[in-house]
């Protein structure tokens, strides 16, 4: 078998194990959908000013939860599951076989991307059915898919890099949430950030990748009046690249003692 075929086979087995594991199926898959329902029904009736235009909060949340889905499926999922695999010795075992390390990890990343795409599709369908959200078509759809893939890949790379600072699998959820939850709040994923949000929060948003990703997702999803900015995608990819470099340098295949 060629290495690419081995890698794709890895995706298949990862997928099998993923759906049989109640924790991954729930926290990665059901969780974002649950948040979507809760947020839109609790807070989806008002409006929020963005770029001088009033946006329905329901529309805001459909795109924000699609963003959240991708981050959960790639960043959180990869960081936690790969740490677990490292600490239980699965990575070490794989490392002793002829399978190239990249084929194993890329297999996991591609699986995470597939889960992310599925979640985004479900979120979009939910938005269309309950809130009459317009679904992107044509050139907009192409841009949107590009943003989803760029975001998924970048956050997966950051997830791999994060495993290097997680001391052991028990600490996984604590470390990962300590990193991602504040960023999700400060980037307007759970609570809309309008034009009048505090300056320091907006500064945080411009530095870290979550807000750029969320903005690009919203613009890609709805088109006007949101402006699609290529620099959002660029900053996202730069973070992803940084994650990849850090992972290549600090990733460990063996349990941490």
């Amino acid at each position: 078998m060629s290495d690419v075929a081995l890698m794709l086979r890895q995706v298949r087995y990862t997928n099998k194990a993923f759906w049989r594991n109640p924790a991954s199926a729930f926290f990665t898959f059901a969780f974002p959908l649950m948040f979507l329902v809760i947020f839109t029904s609790l807070l989806g009736k008002g409006t929020v000013p963005i770029g001088g235009v009033l946006i329905k909060q329901s529309s805001y949340y459909v795109a924000a939860m699609a963003t959240f889905s991708v981050i959960t499926a790639s960043y959180t999922n990869i960081a936690m599951s790969v740490t677990y695999q490292r600490d239980s010795g699965i990575l070490k075992r794989v490392r002793g076989t002829p399978l190239p390390g990249w084929a194993y990890l890329v297999g996991r990343v591609i699986h995470a991307l597939l889960v992310a795409v599925l979640l985004v599709a479900l979120t979009a369908a939910f938005g269309a059915v309950f809130y009459g959200a317009d679904l992107p078509t044509g050139a907009l759809l192409a841009k949107f898919v590009l943003v989803v893939v760029a975001g998924g890949a970048s956050f997966a790379a950051l997830g791999l890099a994060t495993t290097a600072i997680v001391p052991n699998a028990d600490a996984g959820p604590a470390v990962v949430n300590a990193i991602i939850l504040p960023l999700l709040f400060l980037s307007g994923i759970f609570i809309p950030l309008g034009d009048n949000s505090p300056a320091w929060i907006r500064t945080v948003g411009t530095i870290f990748p979550v807000k750029h990703f969320a903005d690009a997702m919203r613009a890609g999803f709805y088109g006007r009046p949101f402006r699609f900015e290529w620099h959002d995608v660029l900053i996202l990819l730069l973070w992803g690249l940084g994650g990849l470099v850090a992972a290549a340098r600090f990733f460990s295949w063996e349990p941490r003692k």
Binding site: Y13, A17, R20, Q85, S88, G89, I90, K92, R93
Partner: peptide
Amino acid sequence: RVGIVLQSTGIDPYL
């Protein structure tokens, strides 16, 4: 060309 049984390793529990 080599097969390895480590002193302690994990296996994916769900396969």
